[in-house]
Every structure is written in structure tokens, then in C-alpha cells.
Amino acid sequence: MTNSALQISVVIPLFNEDESLPELSEWIVRVMNDHDFSYEILFIDDGSRDNSWNVISGLSLENPYIRGFRFVRNYGKTAALQTGFQAARGEVIITMDADMQDSPDEIPELYKMIREDQFDLVSGWKKKRYDPVTKTIPTKIFNSATRSISGVALHDFNCGLKAYRKEVVKNITIYGEMHRYIPVIAKWNGFARIGEKVVQHRPRKYGYTKFGLERFIFGFLDLLSIAFVNKFGRRPMHLFGSLGTLMFFLGSVIAFWLLGKKIYNIYNLQPYRNVTENPLFFLALVAIMVGSQLFLAGFLGELLVKQSVSKTGDYNVSDQVGG
């Protein structure tokens, strides 16, 4: 099997899942052989403290199409996926969790949706879940907020079972807790053909969940971050410059109004108090100072963006013809 003929790369991030790995790999291999797929399986050991790496090493010796990557410590699921994306050689990349709650039997249909239905990305939707209420309710709130902010109409951003065209994963970069926002990042990078498939959610058979409510907090902050970077990353002056100009203008109007009022009272021999005795003076002063700083921040941001683009030119080009 040559790299050019490789149809599917299955990327599996894991942390302390040694019990499930033999059964999971056997199941995936069976599905691949039944459908005559050329494949590779990439296990990304995210700093496990159990016997996971020894299991992966043994599986790799038994099957040349199984590869393993081991982190020196726990970096998180996003880092594991990014490493798998960089190493994957298949035309279609399938991601799934290692806890066997994702069914490998979904792989053929996901592959078909990418290759035949021409989707850039297909996300699984675990319509019926076997998770406790403490996980399902926050998940629903999270998914609703993500749909509203991103404009990507998916029901289940957290589902680990997804399929991608190779071009998608090779042209995006994820970090932090951004693995759940890959569909959002893909869309904002021009890969807008996003599909969804109802998939089976199986009860956990081995180990215990690594879920924590803090993941939703950090994940929501990451969503705000990528929303800001997508909209203003290339044009920071549009945000900071606009806010700075508005605040500077309002501060100036208040200051001139106070000054004009004082001059009017002096001219008409009316009593007046010093401008600095009016609280509005300090409000105007703060607005002018903050406005100037915001405008300067936008200006410096534009310089940094221009320098970065001139060095990297990192725009996604879909096609090219000629010399």
C-alpha cells in the first residue's frame, strides 16, 4: 500500500485508555478489511500514566498500518489532534475517541459523505446520549451558544467522531481547547461544505470519563477568541480604531461643551465654576486618553499584521494553473 493510495487515516487521541485499545483497534481493522479500505490508524498518547503506550507499541508491531505518537506530558485533546492531523497521510481523516463510545461502523458512511457527497467536513451528532444530566445539560447550552456565535448549524460540536477532507486538516491550526470548534475554524477558512450525520453513542465500557465543567468555561473563552481573531485578526484597526475614534470624539465633545459653557457664562457675567470641578471633565479626559490608546493599539496591530502577512503569505489557495 502506497501513500498515494491511502484512503483513510483514523486519528485517535487518548489519555489512560489502555483497556479499550486492543478491542477498538481490532474493530477498526475489521471494518477496514470488510470494505476493502486502505488505511492507517494513528494513536496519539496524550501523556498517559497507565499502560497505554505499551499497548500501542504492541499493536504497532502486530499491524504495520498502526502508528503511535507519545507526548512527554498531558497537553490536551487539541494538541493530540493537531499532531495527528500533521502526520495523517490519508485522503479522508476520521477522528474518534478511544473510549469506545464512538462506533467504527460509522466510518464507511462518513467516508462516503466526504468522497461522494463532496462535503469538506462531516460532524457526528449523538442524538441519543448515555451521559449523565450533569454533562448533557451543559452540552446543550454550549452547543446552542456556539451555533449562535459561529453561524455553523451543527447540533453536537463536542462529538469526537468527525470526518475531514485532507485539505481541511492540512490548512487549519488548532490550539488551546479549540478541537470542539474545528467546524467553525474550517468554515472561516473557506471550507463551508459542512455536513452532519446522526451517529450511535455507546455506553462507556472501560475506564472513566475525563469530562470536567471547566472544559466548557475554557472552551467558551476559546470560542470568543477565535471569533475575534477571525473577524479582526487581519484588520485590528477596524475594531480598536473605531472604538478609539468614538471615545476620543465623545470625550472631545464633552470637553468643548464644558469650555463653551464657561466662556458663555463669563461673557454674560454669570456665575460659573471651574471646568475641573465638573465630574464630566474627568469623564471627558478619560475618554480622550482611552480613545487615543485604543487607536494606537489598532495602528500597532495593523503594522504587526502587515509584517506577518508579508513574511508568510498564509492564505489558502484552492487551485493554480500555469507555470
Rank of each mutant, 00 (worst) to 15 (best):
N3V: 15
L6W: 10
V11K: 04
I12Y: 01
F15N: 06
E19P: 01
E23H: 14
E23F: 15
Y39M: 04
L42G: 03
D46W: 07
D46N: 15
R49P: 00
N51R: 15
W53P: 02
I56P: 01
S57L: 14
G58A: 10
I66E: 13
I66Y: 06
R67M: 13
F71S: 00
G76K: 03
K77M: 01
K77F: 01
A79H: 12
A79F: 12
L81C: 06
T83M: 14
G84K: 05
A88D: 05
A88W: 08
V92L: 01
T95Q: 02
D97A: 01
A98N: 01
M100H: 01
S103M: 06
P104T: 04
D105W: 06
D105I: 05
E106D: 11
E109R: 00
D117L: 09
D117K: 12
Q118K: 15
Q118E: 04
Q118C: 08
L121P: 05
V122W: 04
G124T: 09
G124P: 12
G124H: 04
T134F: 10
T139C: 10
F142E: 11
S144C: 09
T146K: 10
T146C: 13
R147A: 11
S150P: 08
S150Y: 05
G151Q: 09
G160R: 00
K166V: 04
V168R: 02
K170G: 02
I172M: 02
I174R: 06
G176C: 05
G176D: 11
G176W: 04
M178Y: 05
Y181E: 03
I182D: 02
I182F: 03
V184C: 01
I185K: 05
A186M: 00
W188Q: 13
N189W: 04
E196Q: 00
E196V: 00
K197Y: 09
V198Q: 11
V199A: 03
Q200R: 03
Q200H: 07
G207H: 00
Y208T: 12
F211T: 07
G212A: 14
E214A: 10
L223I: 05
L223Y: 08
L224K: 09
I226N: 06
I226D: 03
F228D: 11
F228M: 11
R235W: 05
P236K: 05
G241H: 13
G241Y: 11
L243I: 15
M247R: 12
F249Q: 11
A255I: 11
A255D: 08
F256H: 10
L259Q: 13
I263T: 05
N265R: 14
N265V: 04
L269Y: 06
P271G: 09
Y272V: 01
R273G: 14
N274T: 08
F281R: 09
A284T: 07
A284K: 10
A287G: 06
I288K: 13
A297I: 15
F299Q: 12
L300V: 15
L300T: 11
E302V: 13
L304S: 13
K306Y: 09
V309R: 12
S310G: 11
K311M: 15
D314C: 10
N316W: 14
N316I: 15
Q320H: 06
G322D: 04
G323H: 08
